[in-house]
Design a protein around this nucleic acid. Sequence first.
DNA 1: AATGAATGAGGCTTCATTCAT
DNA 2: TATGAATGAAGCCTCATTCAT
Lengths: 183, 183, 183, 183
Amino acid sequence: MSSKPLRADARRNRERILAAAEEVFARRGAAASTEDVAALAGVAIGTVFRHFPTKQDLLSAIVKDLLARLTAEVTELADGDPATALFDFFTRVVEQAAAKKAVVELLAQNGVQVGVADPVRGLREAIGVLLERAQSAGAVRAEVRLDEVMALLTATAQGALHGGWSDDLRNRTLGVIFAGLRG
Amino acid sequence: MSSKPLRADARRNRERILAAAEEVFARRGAAASTEDVAALAGVAIGTVFRHFPTKQDLLSAIVKDLLARLTAEVTELADGDPATALFDFFTRVVEQAAAKKAVVELLAQNGVQVGVADPVRGLREAIGVLLERAQSAGAVRAEVRLDEVMALLTATAQGALHGGWSDDLRNRTLGVIFAGLRG
Amino acid sequence: MSSKPLRADARRNRERILAAAEEVFARRGAAASTEDVAALAGVAIGTVFRHFPTKQDLLSAIVKDLLARLTAEVTELADGDPATALFDFFTRVVEQAAAKKAVVELLAQNGVQVGVADPVRGLREAIGVLLERAQSAGAVRAEVRLDEVMALLTATAQGALHGGWSDDLRNRTLGVIFAGLRG
Amino acid sequence: MSSKPLRADARRNRERILAAAEEVFARRGAAASTEDVAALAGVAIGTVFRHFPTKQDLLSAIVKDLLARLTAEVTELADGDPATALFDFFTRVVEQAAAKKAVVELLAQNGVQVGVADPVRGLREAIGVLLERAQSAGAVRAEVRLDEVMALLTATAQGALHGGWSDDLRNRTLGVIFAGLRG
DNA sequence: AATGAATGAGGCTTCATTCAT
DNA sequence: TATGAATGAAGCCTCATTCAT
């Protein structure tokens, strides 16, 4: 089921490449060159392609990574106060978005094409749990559906990402959305 | 202020190029080639570069165009019911976004770099008028500021654009935002 | 039916590229680089790709060119003495082969894949006429079929090509084959 | 004369690599990657390069192998009927060619460069014996020389190889050549 | 001796931009 | 002014070869 474990140096490189890719693509968008990723990772171009045979593969890997981390955060929050968990998560994602740049962009526009449909579904379901609990606790109107929550989350993350919002602006913007969710 | 008036055929070409560019970049994103724009416009590539010395110039021109049209819409709506004008505009922009693709993307991420700061300011001010009137009419909470309205507008337009929202989803998403603005 | 005629300079370049390609691929095989072709032709690499969007296209063009020339030679010989026309053509092809290198190679192994099936068929049919006439004239045994004539022609061309035969060796080798065809 | 004897496992690997290389290069031509050879042999790429420091070395080794086997066949046939031995050998080589692909190709075009001159000479001499005997037996015209026999053999092997001849076509083609040799 | 990850030159192709016609 | 061919830098990817494990 799992491929054989990588050699220590290979795993180290793989991680350096992923980190470099996240930074490079975050800063300059998905159009940034693979060479730049290699340079930042401190490896030769061939090494990047050994680990990720295609640029798409590299992009997918980053997105999957991010999704996994987000899903983990949701799970963690699921143990907290149902009345605030959803709003907390929402806030965290938008905070982070400002540091993820093109990753969010990829998530939004290419997510499925890039072959990360499954991880996306996982995140969606985890958020669905938060929503249900928030509604049970009376913190979110009953008629709000998961679809629009996801839409608002994605849209806001993108906005924060590209717009370069200040902390204050972010909070006020989220404030409007939260008010709308509460009714 | 204005450069010398263009010859009739030159002006005609300029407009055909702009229209073609809007369509091409809308459909395939800013990465589409200038050659494709020329082809759709029915002119040679050299003609595109005579009118827009740089691809960036072409992109900027499209964005300015869009902003001008949006500003005109705002002005038009300013004569209507203050309680609904802002929401109507918001809705229209998001509706159109789905058909503008990369233009919105450009607006969001490159706006300033591309040198369309002025037109953006014009649009912002026009929307500011709608907001004030809506607040005077009691349709929007008094403490809501123009900043977050712009942020929500941009974010939602991008979301609609990249997310491929259905009409229904768009309406429910906007519904949450409008509820949040009303308080 | 025909695309618009090329500009004078474009046609000149197209021909220089074809000539360069024929020489380069002849000398070093189909694996030679497109850059080398461009360099020999005295144009930039982009120019090669403007005329032949793919390396395969360039290779195909060369092969088609050669086939067209060969077919023309056959047609020309068809007016001569039926008893010698086939042998003359055979001899000429093998003579030329030594100067065509990889072109013959391509013809033999990739001909059809490369999309030159039609020109190949044309040549085959033209040779078929020579064969029939030679047989009517009693210069070739009646039971010899076009298939083996083509096979012998291709094989001998390749042999001459790769083997670097001397004039004398070529003549003696062909002598054996001609004796075999006569019976 | 000979390097130190290999360890048992090393010799085993060397042979598996040779076998894999013959198959891979046969099927996909000399352009196939060394990595693929390693994979088919079930060893790591480093092992291939330990045994054959260069891809060329590997190719040479295959060719030498083939030549050795062919020479052995000639020697074996030398004990048979002088009137048919040469023709039998000729037929066998051409039959096998269809299964050797790139090896024959290498033999023909790179033979000497690749440093297999000696084995080639050995094969040539062995075939020379068959020819002399066939001529003594009156099965081949006296004026036929070894040069053209080799030329015809190589050419036909290549033709069969690249042309994908059917059994029938191969026989008829050889039939013409044999008739030519007999006079 | 074997392994397999790393290297980096080199190949194909695209495309913004320039320039001769 | 328009045309469209030419340019050449830059990007993605492959693969022979080296080297640490």
